[in-house]
């Protein structure tokens, strides 16, 4: 998108400031909490708390990010969290894309019913399932295993992901799949060779979103895990707070360790959300 450059005049720059100042202030307000975390996480732990807003701590204590690993087994927590994500994200992408692909290929009645079913599933309150999922997981022997945390991936983690794939595959002209079928390809082959390469932006979006869901999940490990060696990062951070709720630098390091991977992921896909933002 090209736009004409207006001649730079005084009134134009006043208008520009009037346009941007309130918006920039609001944007700053939303970023501020994250800046507070970073700054608080870099304060020396033995330093008396500041009584004014401190943007950059003096001295900057980068060692907090190392020493927190001596304080609690954060290496184990992070390893477990990555294990959950490494199993859960690919599983989510496969299950959701299979379901979305199949839905898109089905006759109109089955398709409409499945569509209504998925939208209704979106509305099911997840809290309603806590207690009885625990009962079922215990029956299946999943309590106190990583399996309990990965389990939602078996159903595609969120019905939203099935819908995303469904919409993607509906937009593919049916001739594309029909041609592959005439060449003798089965459903799985068409899915792997034709459908998935076409849907890679959706796969990126679904992967990042399911990463965020599985990585951030605090309630599942809290309810289904017992032994500390299985803990994931969210319960680990909460444990840190239980051990010493006044050690703010370490607590903020915990918060930052949890948040940074998500923000990196988010920047990775933001262009899918802001297609028109460069202009």
């Amino acid at each position: 998108m090209t736009r004409k450059r207006r001649p730079f005049t005084f009134s134009a720059s006043v208008a520009l400031v009037a346009q941007h100042a309130p918006r920039a202030a609001i944007a700053a307000l939303f970023v501020l909490p994250l800046i507070f975390v970073l700054s608080a996480s870099l304060r020396a732990p033995n330093q008396a708390p500041a009584r004014t807003i401190e943007w950059i701590p003096d001295p900057i204590s980068w060692s907090n990010y190392v020493r927190v690993f001596d304080f609690a087994p954060f290496g184990t927590y992070i390893g477990n969290s990555f294990l959950v994500v490494l199993i859960g994200v690919p599983l989510t992408a496969v299950v959701a894309s299979w379901a979305g692909f199949a839905m898109a290929q089905m006759g109109s009645t089955a398709r409409r019913n499945l569509l209504v079913f998925s939208v209704m599933l979106l509305m099911v309150p997840i809290t309603a399932l806590w207690l009885t999922r625990f009962v079922i997981f215990r029956y299946l022997g999943l309590v106190d295993t990583i399996g309990a945390l990965v389990a939602p991936a078996i159903m595609g983690t969120s019905p939203l992901f099935i819908l995303l794939y469904y919409w993607t595959f509906r937009r593919v002209p049916s001739e594309v799949f029909a041609a592959a079928r005439l060449d003798g390809a089965g459903n799985l082959q068409i899915w792997a060779i034709v459908a998935m390469p076409l849907a890679w932006p959706t796969t990126v979006a679904v992967s990042v979103l399911s990463f965020a869901l599985l990585w951030s999940d605090f309630i599942s490990p809290l309810i289904y895990l017992k032994s500390e060696q299985n803990y994931t990062l969210p319960v680990g951070v909460q444990l840190l707070q239980q051990m010493d709720s006044t050690n703010w630098p370490f607590l903020m390091v915990g918060a930052a360790l949890m948040t940074i991977p998500i923000i990196v992921m988010f920047f990775f896909i933001q262009r899918f959300f802001w297609l028109d933002s460069r202009g």
Partner: peptide, 24 residues
Amino acid sequence: GVYRVAVFLPTVVPDIAYALIWLW
């Protein structure tokens, strides 16, 4: 675009981290 990304950022912060941040 930058403002939109900024406004969206707190939404992606994990619940536990978000609670700790606001506790501070």
